[in-house]
Design a protein around this nucleic acid. Structure first.
Length: 455
RNA sequence: GUGGUUGUAGCUCAGUUGGUUAGAGCACUAGAUUGUGGUUCUAGGGGUCGUCGGUUCGAACCCGAUCUUCCACCCCA
């Protein structure tokens, strides 16, 4: 019985036209990364589970695709753990590998493993798919591409500036009309937690705060109460809910708010340094916005936090990033600060599609299709096709001498720009009937004439 | 992981209070058209009605489970 053709949920096939569009995105990003001095690397699609587990929080662990052990290794299954419903323990006993969940953690592993072969600060970029066992939704897939650039081995805020410029350069080049780069600093979030006296609850605090623009002040307060944050702390946070105005005005308010927090002050300083420099340099299309509620779940960020949103489209963030000081430490290498960003290629694709911003000409179509009239004509066509190819023209010969109508229809379907006909007459006098498929015009030329017309 | 939603031909969708051989358009193949495509006409092939189970004399239709689609949460690109 025939197997019903289907692909797993959250995955997609890409037709030639779609691949062309995606390639355009990848190339734009790649070109920019290289212009800023990043070098390409690749890492395996799957890593040891121990490399990935525990790096993304409990929520993240749940979303990591595990790879089932093969063959006899399955005999090691910890049946007791299963009976006791200790699922993580059981999973580990039947799976020792997992598909990568992002590119940052594998990169941290890579840096530690190859530290003697790398020149620091090391700047790499990486464009590869990642996998998440998430429930598919608008702009959310189980397999999608991340385009990451990271710089490790330096605490210099110059990189943060570069990354803001990179966001602006790439998204402007992709012709996204209106987008906002949101920026925050983990040290400021730490400061807020300190000032409100809830230092130990920083995660709950920031997650709730992150939802301010979505559920409003009351919603956040509600969530904080549910999480068990004290009312006095919430009272102290109230000024933050009302933060408005431009970046400078927000910074002023925050400076006062964090006056008693050393870490917080440091965060302000960093943010101000980046902001000043970027303002000085100037941006193309990006709006740069300070957003103190921005938390970017990934709990490994320690400094700058970035998020980019396309405006006027219903789509989550299309890029993210930030600085992480301790990521290589879990692999045994201390004092290796890194900062990086990630472009969500698939969401960018969806945004460009929704806004109909892809150029019309997909461009990669064949230039000339040679019609096949039979054995002796075919023999000459094969020779001439190869001659044209040597001259840089994409062309092909129809594989069989089917009815002319059918061959013309095929030419039409594959959007060939020209059709070359060499039948009995043309064969005799070494000519070609060349038909322009757009205009319908047709003329008799020789091989050189064809070259001249097409080039 | 929580809540809702969807599934009939390759694609987009009709369909009968549960009752014989389940339809259309597009696509495909062939012909009208013996050297000319995107228009038209004619004919043809193609479906165990997502899957498994239950109720019933009888299920595409009712019930349950499961998978899938899309959406909102959670979280994130």
């Amino acid at each position: 019985m025939a197997v019903k053709p289907a692909i797993p949920k959250g995955t997609r096939d890409f037709l030639p036209e779609e691949v062309a569009k995606r390639t355009h995105i990848f190339n734009t990003i790649k070109t920019a990364f290289e212009k800023y001095g990043f070098q390409p690397i690749e890492t395996p699609s799957f890593e040891l589970s121990s490399t990935l587990m525990g790096k993304y929080g409990d929520e993240g662990d749940r979303l990591i695709f595990r790879i089932l052990n093969s063959g006899d290794k399955l005999l090691k299954a910890d049946v007791m753990a299963l009976e006791n419903k200790e699922l993580p323990k059981f999973s580990n006993s039947i799976s020792e590998k997992a598909l990568r969940y992002d590119l940052t953690v594998p990169f941290a592993r890579f840096v530690v493993q190859h530290q003697n072969e790398l020149a620091f600060p090391f700047k790499r970029y990486q464009i590869q798919p990642v996998w998440r066992a998430d429930r598919p939704q608008h702009g959310r897939y189980q397999e999608f591409y991340q385009c990451d650039a990271d710089a490790v081995g330096s605490e210099s805020l110059i990189y943060e500036i570069d990354f803001v410029l990179l966001f602006d350069e790439v998204l402007s080049a992709l012709k996204i009309p209106d987008f906002t780069i949101k920026m925050n600093n983990r040290k400021i979030l730490t400061g807020i937690a300190e000032v409100t006296g809830e230092s130990t609850r920083i995660i709950d605090l920031t997650i709730a705060l992150d939802k301010l623009d979505k559920i409003g002040e009351e919603g956040v307060i509600n969530e904080l109460l549910i999480k068990g944050i004290s009312e006095s702390a919430i009272e102290k946070m109230k000024p933050l809910f009302a933060l408005t105005g431009n970046n400078e005005e927000k910074m002023e308010v925050m400076k006062t708010f964090l006056i008693s927090s050393e870490v917080g002050q440091k965060g302000i300083e960093e943010l101000e340094f980046i902001l000043d420099n970027v303002n000085d340099i100037g941006l193309n299309k990006a709006k740069l916005e300070i957003d103190f509620t921005l938390a970017r779940g990934l709990n490994y960020y320690t400094g700058a936090i970035f998020e980019v949103k396309a405006n006027g489209v219903n789509m989550g963030s299309i890029c993210g990033g930030g600085r992480y000081d301790n990521l290589t430490e879990t692999f045994g290498l201390k004092n290796m600060s890194g900062v990086g960003i990630s472009f969500g290629a698939d969401r960018i694709y969806d945004v460009l599609n929704e806004l109909q911003l892809f150029p019309d000409d997909s461009g990669n179509n064949i230039q000339v299709l040679f019609v096949n009239f039979g054995a002796k004509e075919q023999r000459r066509c094969l020779k001439w096709v190869q001659h044209l190819r040597k001259n840089g023209i994409s062309c092909e010969l129809y594989p069989s001498s089917s009815k002319l109508q059918k061959q013309m229809k095929y030419a039409n379907d594959i959007k060939a720009k020209f059709v070359a006909l060499i039948g009995e007459e043309e064969y005799k006098n070494n000519s070609i009937q060349l038909k322009n498929m757009e205009t319908g015009e047709q003329s008799s030329v020789d091989l050189n004439g064809l070259l001249a017309m097409i080039k």
